[in-house]
């Protein structure tokens, strides 16, 4: 194992995980303009749905992944319908939406802990079947490769669909100006609901893949969300490309940063980067 390739791979893996979390977060923020705190716990819901169907009931792996992703998507849709849509209809401020999402986050996290215990759990069934690949002296596991490829493919699919499909154009219209979008006949609530479904499905997939890579626990949602928010701010909140770049920038900064100093500085490095961007480039890498 060579050190530089391994450090680069460690950074890329961390970046890919952050990118998956930030993609859905940015998509939802773009359409709704509020910090959806439940995004972290939606990833946890996807992971625990997989745990139940894939590991406890022993269903087929791909079917379980599909159920996990679908559960996360339904949870996201349900939160929009039950909490955010009624608040939006009452013209609630973004602060009210943020606090409501924080409340929903706490409640959902507690429910998961009650249903599945707070015990740390893994999603893999048999560790010995895990394939490991060597790239220029560094090693990467099959799961980490899937995380990386998923991040790239989902980003590409999102970018293309936002640019070339009618739905994508409507999402962009809602993101630019919700009132104007309504005037030209777009059902903005329907578009936002669909955005919640897509963003939450991506979060669910992220939760499952993270579960395969490191493991899951009910409280993991907050740290995922925090990293997702940092990445979004670095990349430009609501910007899909920016979020993707920001994720890898954060991954590299954290992993190279702790190469010569104690590992405990990792979070401090992440927040220092956030402060630097807020001070000197508050609209992120991609926004001018």
């Amino acid at each position: 194992m060579d050190i530089l390739p391994q450090l680069i791979l460690n950074s890329v893996i961390a970046g890919a995980i952050y990118a998956l979390v930030a993609l859905g977060f940015n998509l939802i923020y773009g359409a709704t303009k509020f910090f959806n705190m439940t995004h972290g716990v939606i990833a946890v819901i996807g992971a625990y749905a997989f745990l139940f169907f894939g590991k406890t009931l022993g269903l087929n792996l791909f079917l379980s992944v599909f159920i996990g992703v679908a559960t996360a998507a339904i949870a996201g849709y349900g939160l929009d319908k039950l909490i955010y849509l009624p608040l939006r209809k009452r013209k609630a401020s973004n602060m009210a939406l943020l606090i409501a999402s924080l409340g929903a986050f706490t409640a959902l996290q507690a429910i998961i802990a009650i249903l599945f215990t707070s015990q740390f759990q893994t999603l893999w069934r048999n560790y010995s079947t895990q394939k490991i690949y060597e790239i220029y002296g560094g090693v990467i596991t099959q799961t980490q490769l899937i995380i990386l490829i998923s991040g790239i493919l989902i980003t590409a699919a999102l970018v293309l669909s936002l640019k070339y499909t009618l739905f994508g154009k409507m999402v962009r219209a809602v993101s630019d100006d919700e009132e104007a979008a309504k005037i030209i006949g777009i059902n903005t609530n329907k578009i936002i609901s669909r955005v919640f479904i897509i963003g939450s499905a991506i979060a669910g997939l992220a939760g499952i893949l993270i579960g395969f890579d490191t493991g899951i626990e009910p409280t993991m949602g907050m740290s995922l969300l925090l990293k997702g928010v940092i990445v979004s701010v670095i990349g430009g909140v609501g910007n899909i490309y920016g979020g993707f770049l920001g994720a890898f920038l954060l991954g590299f900064a954290e992993n190279f940063g702790i190469w010569k100093i104690s590992g405990e500085w990792k979070d401090a490095i992440a927040f220092a980067l956030l402060i630097i961007f807020l001070l000197f480039r508050p609209r992120g890498i991609m926004k001018k």
Binding site: N10, I258, S262, G263, K266
Partner: peptide, 16 residues
């Protein structure tokens, strides 16, 4: 002298 946070779950770089 290298320590990690009690909340940390990504140990790849310290293992490296």
């Amino acid at each position: 002298n290298d320590t990690i946070s009690p909340e940390e779950r990504d140990f790849r770089t310290i293992i490296t």
